[in-house]
Design a protein around this nucleic acid. Structure first.
Length: 832
RNA sequence: GCCGAAGUGAUGGAAUGGCAGACAUGUCGGUCUCAAAAACCGAUGUCCUUGCGGACAUGAGGGUUCGACUCCCUCCUUCGGCACCA
C-alpha cells in the first residue's frame, strides 16, 4: 500500500471540488444564453449506488462540459433523478422500506458519489421525478394529451400471476413463470391508458433525416422500430356471415396463392366465427390456450407455431375461392389488422404452418432461375419472379403485379392501398404504486374526466400499505380512490388507480432543467426556446429506441400545442458502450459490480476518470480491469513529477545521464531536439483537440498526451522555455479529463486563476511538418525497405532514390517493372 | 426469431484503402536498494534462423484492388434492444 506516495490526491481532490462549488463554476445564469451549450447526460434511476459502469456516462459528460467551457461556451450541465420505478416498490413489498424514503436515500448516496468523481453539475437545477413539484407537470402532460384526443383507454393484455394475483413486468417473467412463486404466467386483459404515438409515426420517421448528428445505428434502429410499410388492406367477405375480415398485406402480388387466413387469438371476430361451429368447445379451449401464452415468447418466434381451424371460410375476391380461416399464435393483434392472408409458397412462416397442418401450397410467383414445385419445395420463395396461377396477371413481373393488382383491387372496391406501421401506441398504465398517478376521475354521472389543472398534482398517498397480495396499494387507499366529481360535485366519484410508465417522467425532464422551480407552468417557453435543442445528449445505447422515441414524441406534441418552438429535442447524440466485467453487464445479482468508492479512496478520482476514458473507444463496450487502473495511476504520478522537475529544468540529467534512451529525439543534436519537442507539443494539441471535437476519442487523446509526456522525459537538457511550454500544454490538455491534478499543478506552475477559466490551446500549423520523412517502400505490396526523403520530393528523384536502394535493387534485379505507384509523402509500391 | 453492433498479441486497444500491433497492462531481464516498494532502462505477435534475414498473422472462407483490419458476399461467435427493468 505504498500508493499514497505517488501524489497527494487525497488532499488535492476535496480541495478543488470545494473550490469549484464555492466559485460556482458550473452554475449558469440562463438569461445569458449567447454562446450557450446545453450538455445533458441521461439521468439515472436511483438504485442503491453507482458503479463504474454508470460512471462512464457522467465522466464523459463532465469532460465535454469542462472542455466546452474552455472553448468559451456558456455551458449548462444539470442533473436529476428518474426516481419512480419498480425496484423501489419491490423493496417496499419485500422489506417494508418506504419507496420515497429509500429512493431519497439512494439519491443522497449517488450525489455524493458523483461529487467524489469530480463530476460537477449546476445542482441548483436538480429535478427529482418522484416529487410532487415535478410529477404535477408529468400529470399536466397527460391532461394535455387527453384534451387533444391523444390519450385514450382500451383493453390490453398484461402478464398475470394467478397465484400472486398481480401484474408482472416482462422482467419478472422468467421462462414463462412468475419470478417469485414460479407459477405459470397467464395473460389478462385490462382497460388501460395509451398515448397515441402512432399519430406521429410519419413525422418521427421522416424527421430522423434531420438528425444529422445522431449515430447512424440509432436512426436505423428507430426506422425499423417505426416499421413503415406500404401495402393493401383487403376486405374479405366471410362466407355465410355479414361481417368482413380486413387483412393487410405488402405482397398483394401473391393474393392468388392465399390458401388460408390466419387470425390472432385475440382478434375481436374470433369468438363470433367459432360460435356454432363443429367442435366449438375444443376449438375455443385451444384458442384460450394461445391467448394465455406469453406475449414475449410469441413475438420472439421462440414458441412453436400452432393453430386451429375455425370452421369458417372467406371468399378470396381475386378468384372467388373459399379460403379457410385459422387462428394461430404467430399472428399478433398489435400489428396490421391482426389477421393475415397466408401464402405458404411465398412466406416462410406461412410455409412452416402449412407444412405442419398439411394445408395446400400454391406457387403463384415462379423463380426465373429454377421452376418451383410445391411438392418438393423446402422453403418459401420470398423473392421476385414471374406471375403464374394468377388469372389475368399471369406472365407479369411480380414487382409490376404489385402495382397492377393494387389498382385492380381499388377499382373493384375489394380493398384499398394503405400504410402500416410496426410502431404501436404507447401503453402507459401501470398497476403499481410508485409512479405518477394518472390524473383521471370517473364519475357515475359525468363519465371519465381529467383532473382540472388547478387541482394538480394528484398526490400519491404516503400512508399506504404494501402487501404481497398483488393489489396496488392505491386501490386499497380509500382516501385516495374516493373523491368528488370535478364537474358535478358528486361525492361518489373515484380516481384512476393506475400510475404512469416511468418513461413518461423521463420524456420531458430536459425541459424542466431550464426553469426547475416554476410552479405555475412546467417550464418557461421563451427561455426553453433559447436553450434547446440540447447541444449534446450523452447516454447508454440501451436507450436507443424507447426513451429517445418517447422524448421525440413529447417534444413534437409540445411543438404542436405551441409551448416549444422546436420539434426535435436532441441535436447531437452520443451513445456510450457498456462497461462489462467478466463478460457481463454489471449488476448486483451477478455480483460483478465494481464500486467507485474504494477505487477513489485508493487511487483518487482522477485515476478512475483517466482509466475509464482510456479503457477503449467510448461508444463501444469495454471490459473493466483493476490492473489497468494502476497504470493510469502511475501515469498521473509521472505527470505530477513534471512540475517538481521544471524548477531545475533538468530532467534526465537528474536521473542518471548514462541511461539515455534510444528515443529518436534523444539521439538528435540539441537544437534539433528542441525543434522536435516543439513539434510534438503542437502535434499533440492538434490531435487532442480533434479527438475531443469529433467523436469523443478520449482513448487516443490520452495516448497522444502520454507520448508527449514520454518525449518530455526523453529530452536531455532542453531549452527551458520549450520545456515550460511542453509541461503547461500537458496540464491544459489533461485538464478536462483529470481536473483536480490539473488545477493543482496549474497553481504550482505559478498560475492564479482556475484552469477552467483558461482558453483552450491553439496549435501552430507551421510547426507540424517535418522536412525529411521516412518513406516505406513496397515491392508487390510487401514492405521491403525504407528510405529518408525530403518532403514533397519530385517523382523522378524519388524513383531514382528508391531504385538505387541496395535492398530494393536486390529484390527487383532485372525483373520488369510493371507499375510504380507513388502515394505522395506516404508510400511507394513497385509492381514487378 | 427480428433489428442493431462487435470480433486484431497473454490483456485493453491503435491504425477506416497505404509501414498491422501506437499508447497502456502483463510477463521477463536489468539499474538503484541491506531488502522491498516506488522510479528508471531494455525485451516481448507466432514460426524458421547462431546471425543477417525470411515466412505466416487482424473470427472462418471467398471476392474487388498495385495494395484490404479497413470495401463486397457467405458463414461462425459474442454483446445490446425487442414495447411492463430503466
Amino acid at each position: 500500500m505504498e500508493n499514497k506516495n505517488i501524489y497527494p490526491f487525497d488532499e488535492i481532490e476535496p480541495k478543488w471540488q470545494k473550490f469549484w462549488r464555492d466559485n460556482r463554476l458550473f452554475n449558469v445564469d440562463t438569461d445569458k444564453h449567447q454562446n450557450k451549450y446545453y450538455c445533458l447526460m441521461m439521468f439515472p434511476y436511483p438504485s442503491a449506488a453507482l458503479h463504474v459502469g454508470h460512471g462512464r456516462n457522467y465522466i464523459i459528460g463532465d469532460v465535454v462540459a469542462r472542455y466546452k467551457m474552455m472553448r468559451d461556451f456558456n455551458v449548462l450541465t444539470p442533473m436529476g433523478w428518474d426516481a419512480f420505478g419498480l425496484p423501489a416498490e419491490n423493496a417496499a413489498i419485500k422489506g417494508g422500506l418506504n419507496p420515497k424514503i429509500s429512493t431519497l436515500n439512494n439519491i443522497q448516496t449517488m450525489k455524493r458519489q458523483l461529487r467524489q468523481w469530480g463530476v460537477e453539475y449546476d445542482w441548483d437545477r436538480e429535478v427529482t421525478s418522484c416529487l410532487p413539484d415535478y410529477y404535477k407537470w408529468t400529470q399536466w402532460i397527460f391532461v394535455k394529451l387527453y384534451e387533444k384526443g391523444l390519450a385514450y383507454k382500451k383493453k390490453a393484455f398484461v402478464n398475470w400471476c394467478p397465484s400472486c394475483k398481480t401484474v408482472l413486468a416482462n422482467e419478472q417473467v422468467v421462462n414463462g413463470s412468475c419470478e417469485r412463486c414460479d407459477t405459470e404466467v397467464t395473460q389478462k386483459d385490462l382497460e388501460q391508458w395509451f398515448f397515441k404515438i402512432t399519430h406521429y409515426a410519419e413525422r418521427l420517421l421522416n424527421d430522423l433525416d434531420k438528425l444529422t448528428e445522431w449515430p447512424e445505428r440509432v436512426k436505423i434502429m428507430q426506422r425499423h422500430w417505426i416499421g413503415r410499410s406500404e401495402g393493401v388492406e383487403i376486405n374479405f367477405k366471410i362466407d355465410g356471415m355479414a361481417e368482413t375480415l380486413k387483412c393487410f398485406t405488402t405482397r398483394i402480388d401473391t393474393i392468388f396463392g392465399a390458401t388460408f387466413i390466419a387470425l390472432a387469438p385475440e382478434h375481436p371476430l374470433v369468438d363470433t366465427l367459432v360460435r356454432g361451429c363443429k367442435d366449438e368447445k375444443k376449438v375455443s379451449s385451444q384458442i384460450q390456450k394461445m391467448r394465455d401464452e406469453s406475449k414475449i415468447d410469441r413475438a420472439q418466434d421462440t414458441v412453436e407455431k400452432i393453430g386451429v381451424f375455425t370452421g369458417r371460410y372467406v371468399i378470396n375476391p381475386a378468384n372467388n375461392e373459399r379460403v379457410p380461416i385459422w387462428v394461430s399464435n404467430y399472428i399478433l393483434m398489435e400489428y396490421g389488422t391482426g389477421a393475415i392472408m397466408a401464402v405458404p409458397a411465398h412466406d416462410q412462416r406461412d410455409f412452416e404452418f402449412a407444412k405442419r397442418y398439411k394445408l395446400p401450397i400454391r406457387v403463384v410467383i415462379d423463380d426465373t432461375k429454377k421452376h418451383l414445385d410445391p411438392n418438393t419445395m423446402e422453403e418459401a420463395h420470398i423473392g421476385d419472379g414471374v406471375m403464374v396461377n394468377s388469372g389475368q396477371f399471369n406472365g407479369l413481373e411480380s414487382k409490376v403485379a404489385v402495382e397492377r393488382i393494387a389498382g385492380y383491387f381499388e377499382e373493384k372496391r375489394f380493398g384499398k392501398r394503405s400504410i402500416q406501421y410496426k410502431l404501436r401506441d404507447w401503453l402507459i398504465s401501470r398497476q403499481r404504486y410508485w409512479g405518477a398517478p394518472i390524473p383521471i376521475i370517473y364519475c357515475v354521472r359525468c363519465g371519465t374526466l381529467p383532473v382540472p389543472e388547478k387541482d394538480l398534482p394528484v398526490l400519491l398517498p404516503e400512508d399506504v400499505e404494501f402487501r404481497p397480495t398483488g393489489e396496488s396499494p392505491l386501490k386499497l387507499s380509500k382516501d385516495f380512490v374516493n373523491t368528488k366529481c370535478p364537474k358535478c360535485g358528486n361525492e361518489g366519484a373515484s380516481r384512476e388507480t393506475d400510475t404512469m410508465d416511468t418513461f413518461v417522467d423521463s420524456s420531458w425532464y430536459f425541459l424542466r432543467y431550464i426553469t426547475p422551480n416554476l410552479n405555475d407552468r412546467p417550464f418557461d417557453t421563451a427561455l426553453v426556446n433559447k436553450w434547446l435543442p440540447v447541444d449534446q445528449y450523452i447516454g447508454g445505447i440501451e436507450h436507443a429506441i424507447l426513451h429517445l422515441m418517447y422524448s421525440r414524441f413529447i417534444t413534437k406534441f409540445f411543438s404542436d400545442i405551441g409551448v416549444v418552438s422546436f420539434d426535435e429535442p436532441f441535436k447531437n447524440l452520443f451513445t456510450q458502450g457498456m462497461i462489462v466485467k467478466d463478460g457481463a453487464k454489471m449488476s448486483k445479482s451477478k455480483g460483478n459490480v465494481v464500486s467507485p468508492d474504494e477505487l477513489i479512496k485508493k487511487y483518487g478520482a482522477d485515476t478512475v476518470r483517466l482509466y475509464t476514458l482510456f479503457i477503449g473507444p467510448p461508444e463501444k463496450d469495454a471490459e473493466w480491469s483493476d490492473r489497468g487502473v494502476e497504470g493510469a495511476y502511475r501515469f498521473l504520478g509521472r505527470v505530477w513529477r513534471l512540475v517538481e522537475k521544471v524548477q531545475t529544468s533538468s530532467l534526465r540529467s537528474a536521473e542518471g545521464a548514462e541511461a539515455i534512451s534510444e528515443s529518436e529525439i534523444a539521439s538528435l543534436p540539441l537544437a534539433a531536439r528542441n525543434d522536435a519537442l516543439k513539434r510534438k507539443i503542437h502535434r499533440t494539441i492538434k490531435k487532442v483537440t480533434e479527438d475531443l471535437d469529433s467523436g469523443f476519442h478520449f482513448n487516443t487523446a490520452i495516448s497522444a498526451i502520454m507520448e508527449l509526456v514520454n518525449e518530455i522525459y526523453a529530452v536531455t537538457a532542453p531549452d527551458s522555455g520549450i520545456l515550460q511550454e511542453a509541461i503547461e500544454t500537458t496540464i491544459v490538455l489533461l485538464s478536462p479529463i483529470v481536473p483536480h491534478i490539473a488545477e493543482e499543478m496549474w497553481q504550482m506552475m505559478g498560475k492564479r486563476n482556475s484552469i477552467f477559466r483558461l482558453k483552450w490551446l491553439a496549435y501552430d500549423g507551421s510547426l507540424l511538418v517535418e522536412k525529411i520523412i521516412t518513406m516505406p517502400i513496397q515491392v508487390n505490396g510487401k514492405l521491403r525497405s525504407k528510405i529518408d526523403v525530403a518532403i514533397n520530393a519530385r517523382e523522378d528523384e524519388l524513383k531514382e532514390k528508391v531504385l538505387s536502394d541496395p535492398k530494393i535493387k536486390g529484390i527487383v534485379q532485372d525483373k520488369r517493372i510493371k507499375n510504380f505507384i507513388i502515394v505522395p509523402n506516404k508510400l511507394v509500391n513497385i509492381v514487378v
